[in-house]
Amino acid sequence: MNALEAAAVFAAGIGAGGINAVVGSGTLITFPTLVALGFPPVAANVSNNIGLVPGSVAGAYGYRAELAGQRDRLLRLAAASLTGAIIGAALLLGLPEKAFGVIVPVLIAVSLVLVVTQPRLNAWLAARREHAHPHGGPWLWAGVLAAGVYGGYFGAAQGIILIALLGIFLDEDLQRLNAAKNVLAALVNGVAAVLFTAVWLLGRTEVDWVAVLLIALGATVGGLLGAKIGRRLPPMVLRGVIVAVGLTAIVNLITD
């Protein structure tokens, strides 16, 4: 990796960390960047997942004020995220790389639809919150489990999926939901990263640690900035960038 490529990965990490803190689709910035630089898709996904963990933690820390009073709820939902992340990461490592090349373009396309439709989704969620179960209930736990499987396997826009689930089943302010989303997403990424690192130590998968470091540094900066100023970014511009990068990734994966 030359200096220009390293700068591109670092910049992508900043963007991904900021987007993850505010919206939740940062993988659609970093993963396509690595693929465009010639990384094999699975190696790019594993390296990207490990690198984004510090940014996820930084984003959760930036929302610490909104986490007040959510400890018991998050402990219950953390069990679902933990279980789902292990299943998703195991699927990524266990399925052939050809399957990843087929499945991921579909997941990216679904993620892009979620990014584009998020404003309407938020409005729909707001209309349903008055009917939400005070503790989320078993359906929320099951939904968070499924989101964890998705996040452990690939993870693009898992934050948007989590916001949708939390908004449907909980009667809470959107910022408090976003804070909870950041914690659960950080847990999924962290658990998957631990599993990927262990498998790498056994020689069963590839990890580019230079890319991991660059993404981690960038994502940490981006996560802290995103938690502070991300809400000021024009939503249409942000969504436009994500969609453009995501479509580029789909084309690269299909034509690879």
Score class of each variant (00 low, 15 high):
residue 227 A to P: 07
residue 251 V to M: 10
residue 59 G to N: 07
residue 48 N to R: 07
residue 53 V to P: 07
residue 144 V to W: 09
residue 166 L to V: 01
residue 1 M to R: 05
residue 115 V to L: 14
residue 239 R to I: 01
residue 95 L to C: 09
residue 120 R to L: 11
residue 94 G to A: 08
residue 245 V to T: 09
residue 77 L to S: 05
residue 27 T to C: 10
residue 135 H to M: 13
residue 60 A to N: 06
residue 175 Q to Y: 01
residue 214 L to C: 03
residue 137 G to N: 12
residue 51 G to N: 11
residue 154 F to Y: 14
residue 119 P to H: 03
residue 137 G to Q: 14
residue 243 V to L: 12
residue 5 E to T: 01
residue 53 V to M: 12
residue 72 D to V: 01
residue 220 T to R: 10
residue 227 A to V: 02
residue 92 L to E: 14
residue 208 D to E: 08
residue 195 L to S: 04
residue 165 L to H: 02
residue 239 R to K: 12
residue 173 D to W: 00
residue 12 A to F: 00
residue 61 Y to S: 14
residue 231 R to Q: 09
residue 240 G to S: 09
residue 175 Q to C: 01
residue 138 P to S: 07
residue 146 A to D: 10
residue 126 A to I: 00
residue 138 P to K: 10
residue 26 G to H: 07
residue 215 I to D: 15
residue 9 V to C: 10
residue 47 S to K: 06
residue 173 D to R: 06
residue 149 V to P: 09
residue 184 L to V: 01
residue 219 A to R: 08
residue 30 T to W: 08
residue 240 G to M: 12
residue 63 Y to C: 13
residue 27 T to S: 15
residue 85 A to I: 06
residue 110 V to K: 12
residue 121 L to F: 00
residue 173 D to C: 01
residue 111 S to Q: 13
residue 19 I to W: 03
residue 108 I to R: 15
residue 127 A to R: 13
residue 21 A to H: 03
residue 172 E to K: 06
residue 223 G to W: 02
residue 39 F to N: 05
residue 40 P to N: 07
residue 43 A to L: 05
residue 114 L to K: 05
residue 11 A to F: 00
residue 255 T to Q: 07
residue 47 S to V: 04
